[in-house]
Design a protein around this nucleic acid. Structure first.
Lengths: 162, 162
DNA sequence: TATTGTTATACTCTATAACTATA
DNA sequence: TATAGTTATAGAGTATAACAATA
């Protein structure tokens, strides 16, 4: 396999491929960074807790927004309603989430974590934060903070679907 | 639907859900930001060119690394080899990519864009850059640059799979 | 034996449409 | 009529295993 000895200035982390124009495409850099955080997630939370990324996020959002609706979750995660139903089914089946009927509007429902679910989320989040901090030790605290805030700023004015 | 009128300081862009601890999980912020860039991608490139994100990235990487191998692509994109084969099949079928036999190592192959493929990538990238710039107009030039560089830094020392 | 790339196949995840029960 | 949530179903995407050809 022909492989240059000298690594060019712009290279993908693992593939050693030049990425001149692509470098400035935010979506591409997000995808590349996500590969790194996904590895951390799988090692720290995904495999040990048998929890998919979506499941973890759903649990976290329910935890921090008790009695929210599944419609809110669907919008926050940009997934369809049937999808949310399926995931909540799974999480409820594992005794992590509880559905309760909304008494003022009987179509809707409140979502809440069980004590087991709460314990799991807290533990998972701690492991994640520690794991990410280790994996990103080549970034300073300031850089990590700025990165988080800039990403949040990008996400905040999320455009409409079209 | 019970909905607070005042938006809390930390909220998901669309779902208006609080995200206190989750806020500091990089993987979560990456996913949220990706929702925003995906909308831009689909509008600017995905739908008009009928090109999936992976396909666009593959074309871009081939364009900027002529005669690279599919094994390199697989590693750069963190996808499996059979997957790459499938995508290259599709792209070759559309006359965008060309496979050529490596004469020194007959197992391997060189990947190259056709003129049609090159034209498409260039055009798509321009549209993407403009579209992202518009969608992210609430970020300054400096902020966008910093964001890109920090993401690149995260991706650069991507950890191994385990 | 190891590696590049492919084929075959099954599985996960997601999306669309149609349904229910409330409003 | 419209909305919250569900069910049913099909499709997209991905991974694993087994294989062929070459090193």
């Amino acid at each position: 396999m022909p492989q240059k000895k000298t690594t060019p200035p712009d290279a993908t982390p693992a593939g050693r491929l030049v990425e001149a124009r692509l470098h400035h495409v935010l979506g591409y850099q997000l995808a590349q960074a996500t590969i790194a955080t996904t590895v951390v997630y799988m090692n720290e939370v995904g495999e040990p807790f048998e929890l998919r990324p979506v499941e973890y996020t759903i649990l976290s959002l329910i935890n921090e927004n008790p009695d929210g609706s599944s419609a809110q979750l669907a919008q926050a995660l940009a997934v369809t309603a049937p999808n949310i139903t399926m995931w909540i089914d799974k999480l409820e089946g594992r005794g992590l989430v509880q559905r309760t009927r909304n008494e003022t509007d009987k179509r809707a429902q409140h979502l809440r974590l069980t004590p087991k679910g709460t314990a799991l989320v807290v533990q998972a989040t701690e492991k994640l934060l520690v794991g990410e901090r280790e994996a990103l030790s080549h970034l300073s605290d300031g850089e990590r903070t700025i990165l988080i805030e800039l990403l949040h700023k990008v996400a905040r004015n999320r455009p409409g679907k079209k």
